[in-house]
Amino acid sequence: MSRTNPPLPREPGAGTPAMPAADRTAWVSAELLGPVVTGDKIRKEMEQAVQRYPNPRSAILPVLWILQREIGWLPPAALQLAARAVGLPEPEVFGIATFYTMFNLKPVGRHHLQVCMTLSCSLMGADRLFRHLERKLGIGHGETTPDGRFTLRRVECLAACGGGPCMQVNFDYRENVDETQVDRLLETLK
């Protein structure tokens, strides 16, 4: 018996998402990593991140954040790059990246709609809000609109419970969003 319409997704989803096989040397060439590989600025930024800690491996999260900011998501090649940057074995970095929920191991849309579904927001109508978004955008949890504009995701408590229902669009908090407001909001997100 499988669960009907779970209020929260089975995330991290059924096992590690299938990623394009990692080419050991991909990161040098892959246009995915263009911005990183070409930009000394980003290289330097990663080095500085490593400098901030007594132990280089502490910089793994900062480095992954930088790469995700630049690429939009974390392809295997990016994980290899991160492993090199902090001197960790590649498999371990893979394990770290998949432990946390905010690293995108698949590409996401320009606007990442992360709707809080935890109790406080749920009490204020998060479930209705999410269904509304599903219908409106025609996508479900973890899916991206064909035009690559929106990715929709159920997430856990965002620490904005007083403003429930709330969501984060990429990093921006949007609180007290009911159906009408969210429609207006979507308009503004090109």
């Binding site: 999260l61 929920t101 905010m102």
Partner: peptide, 18 residues
């Protein structure tokens, strides 16, 4: 990067250590 357990102090330290 998104993990409630990292509020637990020793898990926080693990996370901070990479």
């Amino acid at each position: 990067a998104g993990a409630y357990i990292c509020g637990e102090e020793t898990a926080l330290l693990s996370s901070l250590e990479g």
